Amino acid sequence: MPVFRPLITLLATIVATLATGWIVDQALQRIAARNPGAPVWPLLRRCRIPLQLTVITALLLAASPLKRIFHLKNDEGAHHLLLLFLLASLGWLTVRVVAALLEALLGRYETVTEDPARRQRVHTQISMLRRAVSAGIVIVTVAVMLLTFSAMRTIGASLLASAGIIGIVAGIAAQSALGNFFAGLQIAFGDTVRIGDTVVVDGQQGTVEEITLSYLVVRLWDHRRLIVPVSYFVNKPFENWTRRDPGLLAAVLLHLDHTTPVDALRGALHTRLETHPLWDGTEWALNVTDATPSTIVVRATMTARTPDDAAQLRFDIREHLIAYLRDEHPEALPRLRTTP
């Protein structure tokens, strides 16, 4: 009988935990069904596991059924362990809730904004804010867990006395990490580079795939990933092709013979662009930009919606114009002239 009652308490604790998780999940499902336009409720369902861990740990701390089941006279170790689990669960739950709220805010903003530049900017800012808040919650949680140890509380006074020296040493040692951290915040809220932007870094063109508190991941044209410290984008110049307008002007240069029929070539370019799916219909031109003793330089320009479309359009137009000259005006292709 002395063991029977603690067992019932333990089973009731487990049942109460499962029931709490089920009730909260069902409530979120019903709220989400009534408000289909609000993405926050489905995202909050991800918090079920940390919520259940928090509930069961709190109930075990309050009821202490394990002490009576195993006849523990001194349960300070078990009580301390449960307290650590409770703090960790609360930290995990807080991180999940904050992440769900920020993702819901981003999803809500994307549904009411059609400007891709603004959506990329907000996406970058919210991603950086989520990482910073999550890191802060983890640091606070670990600090509170450490303070539960009596040894940490005992040496607290000496640590505070030497806090100035430790702060100076830590600041010097972590100068690079702190610089990257504040550079990441400056990038996120300064709108210099965003996720999805096309940038040129050290002569290599790529698309920003991920921005963290310490580095950026740039996906190159051949699917390689270039890892760049965020401080690079603050201290050094770089090209951002899509900061204001994702559309770009693609250019094709051809070296041709002086007998080239420029008007016919211009008409062939216009005819091809009218049927090309990557041309956005905004601008196009074909001009003779230079002349040498043996050739002329013809430049064809046309606009596209994105940098990737501009690159592919440039390849297609170059191939089409060369094929047109080869088939219709072979005399326009450059030749080496000799005289007897």
Rank of each mutant, 00 (worst) to 15 (best):
I31C: 05
R219Y: 13
A163N: 06
T260Y: 09
L253E: 13
L273Q: 04
T141E: 01
T124Y: 08
R224A: 03
M302D: 02
S231V: 05
Q125F: 04
I14D: 07
I165G: 05
Q186K: 15
V55A: 03
G206P: 06
R153M: 05
N235Y: 03
L18A: 15
D327K: 05
V55E: 01
L213W: 04
E114K: 10
L336R: 13
V228S: 07
P65F: 00
L254N: 07
T306D: 11
G164F: 12
L84C: 08
L249R: 09
V201F: 03
H123T: 10
Q26W: 07
A62D: 02
F181I: 06
L66M: 11
H276T: 02
P42M: 11
V208K: 14
P50E: 02
I137T: 10
T141Q: 06
R118C: 04
E283Q: 12
P42W: 13
T141M: 09
W22L: 05
L220G: 10
D316P: 07
I23P: 05
V218I: 06
A264M: 09
T54P: 04
T212L: 00
Q125T: 06
A132Y: 00
T338P: 09
H223I: 03
V288F: 08
L18Q: 13
R219T: 10
T141K: 03
A188I: 04
V218S: 00
Q26M: 11
F238Q: 07
V133P: 05
V200L: 10
A323Q: 11
I69L: 14
N235T: 14
W241Q: 04
N180D: 13
L213S: 12
L105S: 10
F85H: 11
L160S: 08
V297F: 08
T212A: 05
G77V: 02
E328I: 01
P36R: 00
V200W: 02
N74P: 01
G196F: 00
V55D: 02
G164I: 10
D280Q: 05
L147R: 14
I23D: 05
A285I: 02
L101M: 15
Q120E: 14
F4W: 13
R130Y: 09
A38R: 15
R153I: 02
G206K: 09
T242S: 09
P334C: 07
